[in-house]
Amino acid sequence: MFFDSASDLWRIGLIGVLIYIVLITVLRVSGKRTLAKMNAFDLVVTVALGSTLATIVLSRDVSLSEGATALILLVCLQFAATWLSVRWPFLRAAIKSTPTLLLRDGELLTDALRGQRVTDNEVFQAIRSQGIGDLDAVAAVVLETDGTFSVIPQQQAGNRTALRDIDVSSARDGA
């Protein structure tokens, strides 16, 4: 259908503006971390917020108060999970993944690649995107918790303290 009624359009407009105000308010109160893209857990929450927002705006079956409650609940759950994971390492391990070393000193770590379902061509692409043409010029490539690749050139590797949170055994066994 192309057009049902003007009242439907007015309802969408009004609900859209009101729930947008609620969403912005809730996000401002909850802080920057709520929409951070630090890992897959954060991505799922962001997608859930977007899906919930769309449902609130477009569905006549969801009232504004029900929708606002759903948004607030998602943000509160995200806040609680991140707050608790900062304080309790065992919960952090359950919620969040760890970075994985995919290449060390120009050598691909094939078990880690296989374990993370990453091809060598994807690693090469990440290296090339940094303007590097020689694998020997790369100290490390890390698959970060948010799914991005970090490429560390040999010239900038220094004492490699930025790699200290990466479990080297995970690179060997693909975990």
Rank of each mutant, 00 (worst) to 15 (best):
D167R: 12
T25Q: 01
F90P: 11
T110D: 15
D165V: 10
T161M: 10
V22T: 12
R164V: 14
A6H: 09
P153I: 08
A137Q: 13
A40C: 01
F41H: 06
E66R: 13
L27E: 04
P153V: 08
V168L: 13
L43E: 00
V138A: 06
N159Q: 14
S63E: 02
Y20D: 00
T119D: 11
E107D: 13
F3K: 00
L91E: 04
D120F: 13
D146P: 12
Q116D: 02
I15V: 15
D8H: 08
R172N: 09
L18F: 09
I24G: 03
V151R: 11
M38K: 13
L35V: 07
L135S: 03
D111H: 15
I19V: 15
L35M: 07
S150W: 13
S85M: 02
F149N: 07
R160A: 13
D173C: 13
V168Q: 09
I152D: 05
G67W: 08
F79A: 05
F3T: 00
G50T: 05
D120N: 12
I19Y: 04
V62Q: 04
C76D: 01
A94N: 01
T52L: 08
A6F: 15
A137Y: 03
P153M: 08
W88N: 04
I19E: 05
A68K: 01
Q155P: 00
A48Q: 03
F2L: 11
T100A: 15
V22C: 15
V118W: 11
D134H: 10
E122T: 06
T100Y: 07
R33H: 08
D167E: 09
A112S: 15
R117P: 02
A70R: 05
L163D: 02
T25M: 06
Y20N: 01
L143T: 10
T161C: 05
P99G: 04
R33V: 03
E66Q: 15
F79E: 00
R92M: 00
T34R: 01
T52W: 09
D8G: 03
K37Q: 14
A139T: 01
T148G: 07
Y20H: 09
T69L: 13
T98K: 11
A137D: 14
D105W: 05
A94T: 02
L73Q: 00
L108D: 02
T100D: 12
L108P: 12
S85W: 03
Q116A: 14
R87E: 04
E144R: 06
L113Y: 13
A157G: 05
T46G: 09
A93D: 12
A126G: 05
K37T: 08
I56A: 07
I21F: 13
V86P: 00
T161I: 11
V168T: 10
T25Y: 07
L53T: 04
I24N: 02
A70Q: 05
A126R: 04
M38A: 11
F90V: 06
A171H: 09
V75S: 03
D165W: 06
S97K: 13
W88R: 08
I152L: 15
G16Y: 02
N121K: 11
V22R: 03
L9Y: 14
V86C: 05
L113E: 09
A94P: 00
L35R: 01
A6K: 04
R87L: 10
T100P: 06
M38Q: 12
N39M: 01
F90C: 00
R104T: 01
A171M: 09
